[in-house]
Structures are given as structure tokens and as C-alpha cells.
Design a protein around this nucleic acid. Sequence first.
RNA 1: GCGAGGGUGGCGGAAUUGGUAGACGCGCUAGACUUAGGAUCUAGUGAGGCAACUCGUGCGGGUUCAAAUCCCGCCUCUCGCACCA
Length: 822
Amino acid sequence: MNSDYEPRKIEKKWQRFWKENKVFSCERSNKRKYYVLEMFPYTSGTLHMGHIRNYTIGDVLARYKLMQGYNVLHPIGFDAFGLPAENAAIEKNIHPQKWTYDNIRVLERQLKELGLSYDWDREVITCNEDYYRWNQWFFLKFYEMGLVYRKKAPANWCPSCQTVLANEQVVNGRCYRCDTEISQKELTQWFLKITQYADELLEEIENLRNWPSTVKKMQVNWIGRSYGMEINFRLSDDLTPIPVFTTRPDTIFGATYLVLSPQHPLLEKILVRNPGIKDAVERMKKDQLKKGEVEKEGIFSGFWAINPVNQEKIPIWIANYVLMQYGTGAIMAVPAHDERDFEFAKKYGLPIRVVIRPPGSNLNEETMSQAYVEEGEMVNSAQFSGLPSEKGREEISKWMQAKGMATPKVNYKLRDWCISRQRYWGTPIPIIYCEKCGTVPVPEKDLPVLLPSDVKITGKGGSPLSRVSSFVRCRCPRCGAPARRETDTMDTFVDSSWYFLRYASKKHDCLPFDPEEVNYWMPVDQYIGGIEHAILHLLYSRFFIKALRDLGLIKVGEPFKRLLTQGMVIKDGAKMSKSKGNVVDPGEMIERFGVDTVRGFILFAAPPEVDLEWKEQGLEGINRFLRRVWRLVNEELDRSGQEKVKVRAEFLEIYRSGLKGKERILQHMVNKTIKKVTEDIEERYHFNTALSSLMELVNFLYQFPDKGTSVYREALAILVLLLSPFTPHICEELWQRMGYEESVVKQRWPSYREEFLKEDEVTVVIQVNGKLRDKICVQAGMAREEVERLALHREKIKRYTQEKKIKRIIYVPDRLVNIVVE
RNA sequence: GCGAGGGUGGCGGAAUUGGUAGACGCGCUAGACUUAGGAUCUAGUGAGGCAACUCGUGCGGGUUCAAAUCCCGCCUCUCGCACCA
């Protein structure tokens, strides 16, 4: 019998076996389903350690659930549209399509080398015509529903990517992808009305019980719902209304000035009368494009406003700290009770008026050093003075509403999703512009609008498609007159918002998916990916699913039941990156140690949600462990011969009552390990502790004297089964060598029995005054009095209790005795 | 600034409900086998101390028979948001 562990050899063998026998292909059935999904890779470059970690975690779950008897859907595909393909075209003069497909081929090969349990028949590639045509189809459906619209608006423009970006894609004023500073550009863009779902997106977050709270919190903040009032101030000279939004109408009597955003429409009028401030306004506009907080700056507009509640005349300022995008682009400033207004008022010497008094104390406008933003008692507020601010807020709102001064208003930070991209490598937006008929959607029967292949990509001068006249020129589907096609393509986040539905229904061509299939498999039971998509992809997908539900295409309203955001793979304390030179090539590691070792290390080194420090010595540790397992099994085969080792499909000895001595201890050990591994996978995804308990079992088996018995051999078989989701190749090989014919994947996951978990003897800790002084070994379940008597008679304990009065004795059954003296 | 999550040996990390702190692995030390060992096996390994013991989970307090775990205050690190009215 060959007893060298040669990982590369057996890994190739079993990968071929899985493929040829279609071990992981799945069909809808009446079995319990389990849909495990990892975020699909973007098709640039090769796989890095982060991918490997992501897919390994998913693979453990998929294999475990298979052995648990679930009908498991575990698919993979490629996020294939996007800008890097165009950059490659510019830099290397390769067509984006060729570049993408070349990369896909490499990625496929790499993925297959990892021995992942994918159903490859369900592969989805988003740049394929049979995929992106459905993006267009959804677009048309959304258009009919009024969920998609076009408007001219200031857009986030990335000068490097030469395209606009959605709000979510701007991080600290920079492009989420290339880190270039974003500028604003007035453009006509297509938007998806995600704000229509703002309330539902927000409210359903709390039902996502198995999502990390950080991600949920981030989404809540991103949606940013706040309740308040829109109050109408007006200009003092004419009656032009100036609506402002506030969440604190209870502070309105403390409003000492008004502030307009430098982009406020009233500026037009103001600048006519007061052209001297134009430069300052322009400068403030620029300030607002900067990331982060800038020094507050403002200028008096020369105009005055009237406070509707007391007819007071207050100055109107223009300042860089008021954003046009939120609320009405104008605020009432209450410096005494708002930190920003306070800072601004101090800087410009504007009046401060206290209208909320902290409970039990007073505020002095002259001496206060910061705004008081908490609740309190209303003062200086006419008939509302004396009310608690919470109550006053309601009263004053009702009163203003009755007087027609204000209306209740809900504001969101979330804005509609801009999906237009002035790029080539994406889904063409299926719209035609006709002189006579205006904006006309491409009829469904004319889909797909194919992306032309003969395009020059230069990265300059607007959308590449606009220069392909054969694409642009078309006929109006309504009147037949010559017309022009939309040349923007869709944001690639559209592609990733529904790819998991396509997986669930292979090759359906009259609809984006077969609703029956999708209703069977959805929702995704476990989604795994990086935290960087906490907002972007995860919010867009949630929105998409809700929209498709409202279209009647699917039943579920949330796509991902449980979410795991895995930590990064770091080295020398930093994220792996080319610039730092700390990148570890997965291929090289696999070549040297084998896939099972790489997988094992990733799973063992840290729990999945925390960052993982890459240490080659750790790899050696796992490799050593696998070789120990290998040796343990092969030595047994050499000793007793293969035939004798083969045990029945049901383990009989390990579950037999009445075992004695060492066999009883082994039985206990095996049962304990089954329980531990099962619970660590099932409940906590703590694969590191699952593996450590398997290591303990292996250490135990090494020391076990009576090798060759049925109990021992069954223990080995169970070890192989328990280890198989983590390091499947070596386990398949060992399983086969043990004489089994069916793949390890097809085996039932071992179960444990409660009765064998109990220990016959337990160690009871003896403390005196809470300090550990001694330990005794007693029969499990021994009576309290008996244990206490034994404890008190120990020599070591007597030393501490002699001549002292025993106040009480705390007893925790089978664990601890604490003797409290004096 | 606001919000969230961390801080445990030389290192990665265990300790699931308050009940033996440091499982498991790495590293290290010693020994065995060996021509050899960067293979393998055995033993040891939180700190101090000859020992009995003492100290020990970021720091300081508290609750409790008992605290890494609960409470209060502080320090520090990471992440997210950053003028959202």
C-alpha cells in the first residue's frame, strides 16, 4: 500500500471524479433545499487569497449540508462587465471581450483546482448576451412600472473612469474603484427609483436576523430616514416662500438666521440684486465638492426672511455647510441648539437665543461654549414655553400645520440609483430617441439590444458607443422615422443584483428565470462575501428583489436570509497588495502544500469573520496534521488489511451501550467530537475550533493503545467523515482506501448520542474563598454531601480551613466546590 | 465629532449560560530515532520563585462565594459615517 501523502496526485484524481460523476449537480426536488452562495468574482486578473477564503467557507457549508441530506445549490459565475476590461483595451490593445473571456478561462481553471463543490452547469457570465438581455428586459418592465426615469441633475463624475457614478459609489468624495476625486457635472441620466422602497428597505432590516449588525447599521444609516417638518419662511420684501426642513420644530423660536445652500435656486435672484457676493458663492460651491469637513464659511445675502411663528425679521445667509441635495437646501439656524449653527454663529457673531433649558439648570447665551442639543424645557417660545421639548415638538407641529405654516415631512439620505454609465463594456440601455415620438423604449421583441463589437476604445471623448454610427442610427419603433439610440450602458451593479436568480434556474430563455425554480430555491440561505459590499451590492440586490416581487415574478421580498461577511487575508499586518509587496500567490501555495492544506489553514487560523494573518508556518502545521491523519489511517490498513477495516454503513460499535474501559473512553471522545464539530459548523461557523477538536481526536487516536478493534476503526471512519467538508480530497482518498465505494460526499453526516457524552468520572475543582486549591476526581453525579465531605478531608484544603469558621459552601454539580471561610 | 466592534502567553487564537484562564496550532526547550534532520516520535512550555506559594485576560474602581465574561469611568486599536439640518 502506498503510504506517502501526495496531495497533488490525489487532488487531481478526486477533482476529476467529482466532475465526471457530476457529484455536485442539483435539481429541484421535494427535499429540503439549501442555497449557499459566495459573491461571484469580478473577471479581472487571477484569484487572490481573499477569494480562496470566501469560496472555502462556502464549500465547507455546502459539503456539510449535502451530508446532512439537503438538496444543495452551490453555484458560481462571473461578474464580467465593467471598466477594467476597457482599461485593458486601452493599455494593451485587447478587445474587452477577449480580455474578459481570457480571464474567465484562467479563473475557471483556478477555481476547479480548489476542489469546490460547484454545479458548473449553472455558471452565469454577465457579459453574455443571454444574460444581459434580461437586464434590458427588467429595465423595460421597470420603465412600465415607473420605476426608472431620466432626469438632468448634477452627477458624480469620475474624470479617470470618464463616467458618472451612483451616490453609493462615491467614498469620501472619491471614486470607490480608482480613488480619483469626484467632480460634479450636470448631465441627463437614467435613475432607478430605489427611494420608492426606502421605507421597506429600512423596515425589513430588523427582520434580517442573521445578518451582521454592522452591515445592518450601515444600511440604516445610509437610508437615513428622519421625521420632521417642512416650515415655510418667506422673504421679507416679497412673499417668495423659503421652505426649510427641520427635525426640531420645537426650537423655531430660537432661529436667529436662515441659511441657503450656495446652490439654492433663490441665489439667482439674490445675485442679481447683490452681485458682489458672487465670488464667495462660487468658492463655497467648490468647497462642497471637497471630501470631509471643511471650515464653515458664509456670507450675508443682503436679504431678510420672516419667521412665520413670530413674524421676526432674520437675516438670510449663504453658507458652505448647507447641502442642496438634502431637505430643501435651506435651513433655519438655531445656534443655541445645533452644533453646526453654533460654530457658524460664533464665527460670524450672529445672535444666539436659548429656547430649550436643560433639566434643572440654565443656559447663558454669552458664556455657553457649545450648543445644547438634548431635550429639555422650552423657554422664550411664546405659548409653548414651559413644555417639555418632546411634547412641545408635537404641539408646535400641530399648531403650525393648522396655521398652514408647515407640513410634516419625512426625509431620506438615500437617493435614487443613477445607473447610466458613459462606458462601452456594459448592458446597452434599451431606449430610442425619436424627434417626433420622444423617448421610446425598445419593444420587448427587439431585445436584446446587442453590444456592437467593432468599437474603438480610447478612454476619451464621451461614451464609446456614441461613436458607433451603426449602433446609434436606428428607426423609431413607433413611427419608423430615423432615430437615435441611447448610448449609455448600465451600471454593472445591475448585473449583480439578480445573478443569483439566474443560477437558480438554468438556461431559461423565455423569461429571465423560471419562477417555479426560483421560488423553490430562493431565498439564498447563506450568502458569503466581503464587507465592502455592505451598502452597494447588498442594498441594490434587496431593492431589485422587492421590485421583481412587485412585478409578480418572484415570491420572496428579501434575497439573502443569512449573511456572513468574512475578514480580509492580511500579511505582516497589512492587506495584501502589490504596492506593499506582501501578496501571497495561491497557486504557488497549492503547488507546494496541496489544496487541502491551504483550505485547512485558512479555516483553522481564525474564525471567518475576523481578519486572517497569513503565516506559512501555520500552513506547515496543517500539513503536518493532514499527514498525521493520513498515516493513522494507512497504518491501520497495513495492520489489518483493507477488507477487515471496511465497516458497515451504520456504525455499530461506537454507538453500543455497555462498552468498558478504554473503548468506553474512545466512544465518549468520538461522540464528543461529533457534537463539537457539528455545532461549530452549524451554529457559529467556527471552523477553527471544529478543526482543533478534530486535532484533539487525532492526538487521542495516536495514543490509543488498542488499535485494530472495531471501535477504533469506526472512530477512524468517523474522523474521515467529519474532516471531509474541510479537506475533501484527502478524505475521499482515505475513504476509498478504507474500502468504501461511494464518495464521501454521499455519506450521512455522523450523529452523536447524548448518552455517550456523559462522562463516568469528572474532575471537581475545590476552591477556598474563590481560589483554586485542589482538584478531585469523582464519579459523575455524586451527591453534594459526598463531594463536600471528600473536599473537606483533602490535606491541601484542611490547611486553609483549619481553625476557621466555614460560612457556606457553594456547590456546582460535577464541577466545583467553593468553601467560604470566616 | 458620531456610530459599531476589538484589546487574553513570544505569535494565531480557545474559554457556548459568571464556575479549572491560555484548548488547538505555531514557535521555542530538552530527549529519542538517525549518516543527517528543516522528517517523525516523546516530554515540557503565562510570569516570578529552590519551594510552599504569589501574580496574571488594556488601565482604575465596583457587584459577587466566584469576573476574560456583569456594571461604572478611562486608555488604545480597527472599521464605518462624516456638515443629512
